[in-house]
Design a binder for these strands. Structure first.
Lengths: 335, 335
DNA sequence: TCCATTTGGTATACCGATTCCGGATCTCGC
DNA sequence: GCGAGATCCGGAATCGGTATACCAAATGGA
């Protein structure tokens, strides 16, 4: 049973192919009665336009590409789900491309995808959002793109979170519990998130009138392992912090792990908190106090902005979304 | 700067478009010297064939579709990575489709994707691997597909793991530690995994000469929450088990969580083990004893089989892969 | 009523590849 | 040196849509 094409529909409806095309694409200048005939024929034949043919004729692919590099699975999955949701609303589809942004042929590889599949637009996730050569290439070739949490959001299209503010609020929460020796496991400073959260931590300390202690700011990489390593250092300090604010939930999980290893109780001996509110935040014991980052909604919104750009419907912006604090059992009063 | 098309290449190389097409597709009957000229022209113009045009002409899409429903993010991400790896080797691309297999319009939705994008083949993951109506539809329409861990692998193409054997081995491990009161949190019986692991648990008990206790076999759903609920039941039992074999790592994590909640120490008071060896297995405290399931390799292999089918190169099979046991700190001697 | 304008519709070229068919050139055995 | 069969290559049609141009009918204002 072959699939019906546009000629079949035209024949059944008794019109020209172009008229069918008009109906399918909601173009003006088709009489209500003919429209109905065409729609009937479409339903009868179960006709659906073939994407590759439309692409060829319109020079559009009805596809957006999602670029990512090495973030946690739950983050990427949430992003994907959001992107897909926005795509579906416009009958777009999504292709994903895992990449290694540090690779020397990075831009070349992206270009390969670009010329083969010609996605109508790209969604960038950290750290590809800030790959200078990539951005330059995209701009030069006029490829629309939207960024999720880019480090330099000015003048771009996409979505960001008030992360700096959120991080400061987290410190304030710890201060309100009586903590003064508050450490921070810094994220990857290549990511905006790493920079903003560190800045927010400092803001928070300053506002509380607490002095910064360099030994309390240890570098991490937004990974479980780096969290374990950083936490071990902090826990071995002569003057141990009473609270550790990890730059993300993975590192916070690593911190709890290290605390268990050192036979310290959380939050009895030490409070731990994270950032992102990923699935693991509620699956570790104790459940993590963290900042909820609405990744799904952010991705959806970014894609909506991208499609606005692609379809030429209205202005596209850099949208700023709000965080929410989730206070759970991993933080408690100063011991 | 417009992209070069096949005519541009033909002009520069001084041949016909057809000859260029021959070179690009490695077809025979082109002289070495002309081949060289064409390749030079391609390099000079940075020509890459446009996928949508190829699709239209060949009635192939050079795309495989990945269907999934609701498994854990890390599982799906691992699958995606494996699929992409295999695709890349053949210059194929992947589109993903999250679906709700219980939805009434499930088959219709898949058909929509099928007729719009015409993927050359489909990769199915549980539980879509066993959706009778879907399989029937695919067979009727001649859509090639490969399944990962289908419940009924006979005569199909794809990959499975010796899960039953693995589960029995896990029980044997617990027995070797002195445990006799061994409980099992059963997975979703809609999935092959749920069935096989339960069967393996029974095999293991039988081989050890242990009597089955219905109260020790509680249903779960392959999710953290269901693991917590099931574990609470088990821990409240008058005669508490000394070891809990959860059907997957998520439920095992839930079990550890419930144990922490009940202020029981793992493995001091109770041993816990899981199945899958997902990322969380090494991020909880204590690290989980589990069965390593090579999801990435399985997905890659399944895709290779699918592409063999699609490209008509040789026979495609149901491949059986081996598991590996990972003994970590969550299991210990009977208290 | 008549002409200008809008609306509804068709015919045809075109997007960028491949496939089918056939023509030209080369190789080789006799 | 000649025909047969490989080998090499090109022209035209084709895939399933959309864009452009143009025509006919309906509408509207003076």
């Amino acid at each position: 049973m072959k699939r019906a094409n546009i000629s079949d529909v035209a024949r059944v409806a008794g019109t020209s192919r172009k008229t069918v095309s008009r109906v399918v694409n909601n173009e003006p200048n088709v009489h209500e009665s003919t429209r109905r005939q065409v729609l009937d024929a479409i339903a009868k034949l179960k006709y659906r336009p073939l994407t590759s043919a439309r692409s060829l004729a319109t020079n559009r692919s009805f596809t957006v590409g999602l670029l990512y590099d090495n973030r946690s699975p739950s983050y990427i999955m949430a992003v994907q789900a959001g992107v897909l949701e926005a795509c579906e609303a416009q009958h777009y589809s999504m292709t994903v491309q895992p990449l290694v942004s540090a690779a020397p042929d990075f831009v070349e590889r992206v270009d390969d995808i670009l010329t083969r599949h010609r996605p109508d637009g790209l969604i960038l996730t950290p750290p590809t959002t800030d790959h200078a050569a990539l951005l330059k290439h995209l701009r030069k070739n006029g490829i629309p793109f939207a960024s999720i949490s880019p480090r330099h959001p000015e003048g771009q299209v996409g979505v960001i979170l008030r992360e700096r503010e959120a991080a400061a609020a987290m410190v304030a929460h710890l201060v309100s519990l009586g903590h003064t020796r508050i450490a921070h496991i810094v994220g990857d400073l290549e990511h905006g998130a790493g920079v903003w959260r560190l800045a927010g931590y400092r803001d928070g300390m300053k506002r509380a009138g607490l002095k910064e202690n360099p030994a309390y700011m240890v570098p991490g990489k937004f990974s479980f392992e780096s969290g374990v390593a950083a936490a071990r250092k902090l826990l071995a300090l002569r003057q141990r912090p009473t609270a550790i604010f990890a730059g993300d939930d993975d590192m916070a999980t690593g911190t709890i792990w290290a605390a268990s290893e050192a036979e310290l109780s959380v939050p009895g001996d030490i409070s731990v908190c994270g950032f992102d509110d990923t699935t693991i935040a509620t699956q570790v014991w104790p459940p993590l106090t963290t900042i909820h980052q609405p990744v799904h909604a952010m991705a959806r919104r970014a894609t909506e902005e991208l499609l606005r750009l692609v379809l030429g419907r209205g202005e596209a912006h850099m949208v700023e979304l709000d965080y929410e604090m989730r206070i759970r059992a991993s933080t408690g009063p100063r011991p």
